[in-house]
């Protein structure tokens, strides 16, 4: 009902293909992280979804309908695409009031979202006096105005201070937990890792990955364990028999690549080798993402 359906979506600006036959779904009840290098087509996809740009071919719908056909758009979709997209001469309150009025949202709701976004004390100030972080908060307030079931947020943590980042993380997780559809683009891997349940990754306008965060990292990292033992000599010999190599890590621990904790633990038990600590080493989202996009990064520096 409130999922986002992207089907064979294509957008060309002149001869540049910004989005290229893109197909994926964004489902409710979870936070979907939208990743990709600069120019991968994330913002374009969101703009096409909102009817701000005209699609070249394909469709982008929400619950089966085009956004531009909604009679009550702010009640359906809350969007923060560009925090700068506001007339600087208006006050924050007037900015939200004209948006609210267009969708018959009561004025008291404007006060509520100003409060929720933490900018109630700046409501009478003109937007041109706002810092980037305050503009982001205003943009988020606007997105929340109609209590929408779908949220599209393009780089919402831009310019936010650490408290703001924690605030928006909890806000988005809460919104997803209420069964809403939340699509968040970001450049910050650690931020996305802390936030998203699911990932959609683009590169040069094409879909590179659409999977859960777990699977995404799992699929792109070789297994590796980290351990501490009181008998490294015997363990090394036992591992060598099976073709694994034990490498010394810092702080007196050891790492073994290509093996999982359950496998190594079982082997150590059979051999009677004491193992004091044993854990799977998870690759970071950043590592997995960089591996995936290395070939696709249009503007990547050589490395």
């Amino acid at each position: 009902m409130n999922s986002i359906e992207i089907r064979e979506l294509t957008k060309e600006y002149g001869r540049t293909r910004a989005v290229d036959h893109l197909t994926f779904d964004v489902l409710p009840g979870r936070v979907t992280g939208f990743l990709g290098p600069n120019g991968a087509g994330k913002s374009t996809t969101m703009r096409l979804l909102l009817g701000l740009d005209r699609v070249t071919s394909g469709t982008a719908t929400i619950g089966g309908a085009r956004f531009t056909d909604f009679p009550d758009p702010l009640h359906r979709v809350g969007a923060l695409l560009d925090a700068q997209a506001a007339h600087g001469g208006r006050t924050a309150r007037d900015h939200l009031r004209f948006l609210a009025a267009a969708n018959r949202i009561p004025v008291r709701r404007v006060e509520e979202v100003l409060e929720q976004a933490g900018i109630a004390s700046a409501a009478k100030r003109r937007i041109k006096t706002f810092s980037l972080g305050m503009r982001q908060r205003l943009g988020i307030a606007a997105a929340l105005l109609g209590d929408p079931a779908v949220l599209l947020l393009d780089e919402p943590t831009n310019g936010l201070d650490p408290e703001g980042i924690i605030w928006i993380r909890e806000l988005m997780r809460g919104l997803a937990a209420e069964g809403r559809t939340v699509l968040v683009s970001s450049h910050l891997m650690s931020e996305t890792a802390a936030l998203a349940d699911h990932l959609v990754v683009l590169g040069q306008g094409r879909l590179l990955a659409d999977s859960s965060m777990e699977e995404f990292i799992e699929a792109r990292s070789t297994p590796k364990v980290r351990l501490r033992t009181s008998d490294p000599v015997r363990l090394r010999a036992a591992l060598a028999r099976d073709g694994f190599e034990m490498a010394s890590a810092d702080d007196g621990r050891w790492t073994v690549e290509g093996i999982r904790a359950e496998q190594l633990g079982g082997m150590a038990a059979r051999e009677g080798i004491p193992v004091l600590e044993l854990s799977d080493e998870r690759a970071s989202l950043e590592r997995a993402y960089l591996d995936l996009t290395a070939d696709h990064a249009q503007f990547a520096a050589t490395h």
């Binding site: 695409l81 007339h87 001469g89 606007a142």
Partner: peptide, 18 residues
């Protein structure tokens, strides 16, 4: 012209997409 200031039109069209 207020709608073309800083791309304010984009915000307007999220409330009035028609």
């Amino acid at each position: 012209s207020a709608e073309f200031h800083n791309g304010a039109l984009r915000t307007t069209l999220t409330a009035v997409p028609n």
